[in-house]
């Protein structure tokens, strides 16, 4: 193989490695960015869903208190606002809770919520029975709160799992880059060592041998390669033989 082809081959392998490393690193980081954005969006949606459901519960409470103080119109407004917030929560939560287990939990919560609303908000509208309200509010509210806590816990665990997966992904994205840098450095060192041994040193030996020929009248040099340097050495040897004649 010619020296030019060898050097080109050497550089080509380094370039292939760098290109592969860079491509994989960029590809992984783009994917990571996408996953990160998805996680942030989910987190945002979750915050929004939780805000809606909490606010909706507070508004129902306010609505009932308004009824007690005989301001029916304000109470209706508050409760319809609470209904709208709850409906918003229902839409968002459908996208957040995707697995079968999560869907069951969400369904349980929604049933508890409907029960809670029917049982004392709607009933109280009809009856205005303060005693009934006070005796049923606490236990119903507790059931609903614990149902909501379970729902929150599921999502928090999911977020935690997603964050860990993101960290794993980050490591996976970073390692090819580090490995490429180390591998390229090693290849460059090897290139330097091999280039010195098979191309620079033979040239120095050849120069020394030619210089020695001036006074020793003998030309002897060992070249391991069969490339241009090897051919040059052979040609010089032939030339020295001619000169000696």
């Amino acid at each position: 193989m010619k020296i030019k082809a060898k050097i080109f081959g050497g550089f080509l392998t380094i370039i292939i490695l760098l290109f592969a490393g860079a491509f994989i690193t960029v590809f992984q980081f783009v994917k990571l960015n996408h996953n990160n954005r998805q996680l942030l969006d989910e987190n945002k949606q979750y915050s929004s869903a939780m805000y809606n459901v909490n606010e909706s519960l507070n508004l129902y409470n306010d609505g009932v208190l308004s009824l007690l103080t005989d301001t029916d119109r304000q109470a209706v407004e508050l409760i319809s606002k609470a209904d709208s917030l709850y409906n918003h929560f229902v839409i968002i939560s459908k996208e957040l809770y995707k697995t079968e287990d999560e869907k069951i939990l969400l369904k349980d919560f929604n049933e508890d919520f409907q029960k809670f609303r029917q049982y004392w908000v709607a009933s109280f509208f009809k009856t205005h029975d303060l005693q009934f309200y006070l005796s049923t509010k606490e236990p119903e509210f507790k059931i609903l709160r614990s149902s909501l806590s379970r729902l929150m816990l599921v999502f928090q665990n999911k977020l935690l799992g997603d964050s860990e997966a993101l960290y794993e992904h980050f490591k996976r994205a970073l390692t090819p880059g580090i490995v490429t840098i180390i591998a390229s450095l090693l290849l460059i060192l090897m290139f330097n060592m091999m280039f010195n041994r098979y191309y620079i040193n033979p040239l120095s030996r050849l120069t020394d041998a030619v210089n020695k020929f001036h006074y020793k009248r003998s030309f002897k040099v060992e070249i391991e390669t069969d490339d241009e340097i090897g051919k040059l050495a052979k040609s010089i040897e032939e030339l020295t033989k001619l000169i000696k004649k």
Binding site: T13, L17, L187, M190, F195
Partner: peptide, 9 residues
Amino acid sequence: VFGIFPIIL
């Protein structure tokens, strides 16, 4: 790459 590199040089 590491296998071919020394074979070339």
